[in-house]
């Protein structure tokens, strides 16, 4: 992974994230949100985790971003009205960022470069999911089912 590519992806990702966090129009923010996930997936691809990158694209851009857009459309009577910005949040965020950067720079063992690795094949991931990680897999399945049903019940029309 060259430094130029790294810098490019980092700038794209962070710019899109900043846009998603600050744009006034919700729909624009949701689109920047999708762009940000393209950037993160690019990171995953460059770090050799292609499968995770693809899953990220499928799940976030294919599903979550679409869900957000749907929600925006369903609650759109409110979109123009909810404005305003809580400036105290900026101070907290900057403080946390400062603290994290200071800690990272202080930790000497982190300035390392990656070694060559053997690529993780989809086959290997599949084998791991079916052996070592079979219980987490089942739990995630149950969790997703519960989330699906729960979400449906939440949005059902209230009978009054």
């Amino acid at each position: 992974m060259s430094t130029v590519a790294f810098a490019g992806i980092a700038i794209l990702t962070l710019a899109a994230a900043l846009a998603a966090a600050t744009l006034q129009k919700l729909m624009h923010a949701a689109l920047s949100f999708a762009v940000m996930f393209v950037g993160i997936s690019a990171f995953f691809f460059f770090l050799g985790a292609e499968f995770v990158g693809l899953v990220q694209i499928f799940v976030y851009i294919g599903a979550v971003a679409v869900l957000i857009v749907f929600t925006i459309l369903l609650t759109r009577h409110d979109v123009g009205k909810v404005r305003g910005f809580n400036w105290s949040g900026v101070f907290v965020a900057v403080a946390v960022f400062g603290g994290l950067v200071w800690t990272i720079s202080k930790t000497k063992s982190l300035s390392i470069v990656p070694q060559q690795i053997k690529p993780v094949t989809v086959q290997r991931i599949g084998e791991l999911l079916m052996t070592n990680y079979v219980w987490p897999l089942q739990c995630v399945g149950v969790l997703l089912t519960a989330a699906l049903i729960g979400a449906l019940i939440l949005v059902m029309e209230e009978k009054s």
Partner: peptide, 23 residues
Amino acid sequence: IQTYLGAIALGMLALVLLYAWLG
């Protein structure tokens, strides 16, 4: 809810700083 979130963030910051100070 945002006040709670802010408090959580500050608590996390305190933990990070504690870690950096000790390590």
